[in-house]
Design a protein around this nucleic acid. Sequence first.
DNA 1: ATAAAACTGTTTACCTAGTTAACGTTTTAT
DNA 2: ATAAAACGTTAACTAGGTAAACAGTTTTAT
Lengths: 157, 157
Amino acid sequence: MAGSEESKIAELKREQDASDLEEFIGYNLKRAYVIVQNDFRAALGKDGLGPRVFSALSLVVQFSHITQSRLARKLGIERSGLVAIIDELEGRGFLARTTVPGDRRVQALVPTKQGITAYRDAQARVKEHEDLLLENLTAAEKQTLIGLLQKIRSGEE
Amino acid sequence: MAGSEESKIAELKREQDASDLEEFIGYNLKRAYVIVQNDFRAALGKDGLGPRVFSALSLVVQFSHITQSRLARKLGIERSGLVAIIDELEGRGFLARTTVPGDRRVQALVPTKQGITAYRDAQARVKEHEDLLLENLTAAEKQTLIGLLQKIRSGEE
DNA sequence: ATAAAACTGTTTACCTAGTTAACGTTTTAT
DNA sequence: ATAAAACGTTAACTAGGTAAACAGTTTTAT
């Protein structure tokens, strides 16, 4: 056992904060998520895109002409919930709902030039903030973390 | 480069799903968090404790006579938000708000016997479900994950 | 050919989880 | 003694999501 004065203090401090909760993946996940999400909001500012609107725009830019149903599935949310998100992006002039010749049910989502540049800009700012927030994690650690999180995600269809 | 038929297919599939979003820690964190949180709810059932109520109870059991302010700080939420949580736990008969002799502002939170057994029970069920959900992660991976998440958490005061 | 089933986008009502600002009470500092 | 701070609480608000129902459209069975 470590016997130095420092480690005893550190041990004591850890004991003080320690709780059953720390053992749960879910709890740690949530606490970390809240921190990163707050940083995200700080990165894009008060009138900037919210996390979910940013995510939707990202996918529309990358997968032009995607339908709302497919987009909702990709985001892992219900398509009813996507409506307000697309409304906002359309309202900001970042994408358009366009009709599709073969199928009058769907409306393909097409990013505008403005939407594309807005996304590139936001992407850069978020990345910058995230890098700063996580500066005490090495590149390898970040990659490990993403790998483990995706392993959790891979469980769901 | 891998040349087998399988790897080409796997590569194609990965490409199809790949998006800028996967690079963001925040996005991966959120998606994983949603999965684990849903599992948590499944573990405790429709009328079971919600995640935050469970967390609050956990800390009250472990730190008997804690005040609401200190508890809120431990949970990383505002003390105003804690009121409803404590109301619920008190309503279920899992804890009591008790007056403190020296200070008439505070109300020490004391778990009832019922609260303690309810917590032990819930704790076991959540752990069981979490283990099952994360069965494709090794014990070492889970520990690594927790360590990395706590490294993120350690950034905030 | 026609009826049934399935899919698309949408609205509405609801739920969970949290914040900020204000207030009355009590305690601490000056 | 008085000002400042801390405690628990309420009220109004924001964010993010679900479930159920709907009208219109397309696909599938028969």
